[in-house]
Computed example of a mutant assay.
Amino acid sequence: MEEIHSETAKPDPEPKIIGLTGGIGSGKTTVAHFIEELGFPVYYSDDRAKSIVNEDDGLKLKIKQLLGEDSYDEDGMYDRKYVTGKVFKNNDLLEQLNEIIHPAVRIDFEDWVKKQSKYLVFKETALLFELQLNLQCYKSLLVTAEDNIRIKRVMDRDQKTYREVESVMERQMPEKDKIRLADYIIYNNTNLEDLKEQAEQIIFKIE
């Protein structure tokens, strides 16, 4: 009698996570949109964090305990301007705030990954290397540009002064350190067509 062998279905492989980062004014969000146009899902960590601090009651309580009731306005919404003012020049407070928010974002990201069907997914975050999130990624992709170009972009976009933008950049990890850590680098010094071409070439290399 012929034996019948039942084949168990193999589970789909876990998608490979590509960390996407860049300092203020680098253009990482523009690159993220190009990546989405190429058909790959992007998790926007910074945007999700802005939502999570308003959605998670436990998170709200911890933030209020750390920074005070004024961390949320009278409508119960996260007061970003107030919080930024509290932590901007206080590294200890900023570190404590990150220790509250980032674990919640990590859980949200893990849930998001489980719902994806693509073999490559991208995690966009400004703090990829600062929080050593690159160690959890298959590869890392840095978007960078010359300092003067980045400063002008942010001045035009956010109506900030040169010194205001410069002070933000001074608090971020130096570009030379990010370049040393990144697996792939996109230089966003020219135009959108060149930027898109670089993104396509790197996706091809990763694939």
Rank of each mutant, 00 (worst) to 15 (best):
D111G: 14
S6H: 13
K139N: 05
Y119W: 10
R48M: 13
T29W: 00
I63K: 13
S71W: 04
N188P: 11
V53H: 02
Y187A: 02
T190E: 15
I101A: 03
A126F: 01
N90V: 07
V31M: 09
L66Y: 07
R48A: 13
V121T: 13
I107L: 12
G23V: 08
P41A: 07
P15E: 11
E166W: 02
A126S: 14
K114P: 07
R163A: 09
Y82K: 03
I35V: 14
K123V: 06
E130I: 01
I24R: 09
M77K: 14
I24S: 04
I4L: 14
P13H: 07
S51F: 14
E207V: 07
V83D: 08
L141W: 14
C137F: 01
F40M: 01
S45M: 01
S51P: 02
E130F: 04
Q201E: 15
R80Q: 13
G85D: 04
L133Y: 15
I24C: 08
D46Q: 09
D47N: 13
Q65K: 15
A104C: 12
H102R: 03
A145G: 04
I206R: 09
S45R: 00
L66P: 13
S45P: 09
V168H: 01
D147Y: 05
Y138S: 14
S71I: 05
G85L: 01
S71Q: 12
V143A: 08
N134R: 02
V105M: 11
Y184R: 11
T30C: 09
T161V: 03
K152Y: 08
T8I: 12
F129D: 03
E55K: 11
I203H: 00
L120Y: 10
K50S: 13
D177L: 13
L120A: 05
I149Q: 03
Q201D: 12
E55S: 12
M169E: 04
Y78I: 12
P11T: 11
K123M: 12
D183P: 07
T29N: 12
I4M: 11
G19Y: 06
N148F: 14
A104L: 00
V168K: 11
M169S: 06
Q132P: 01
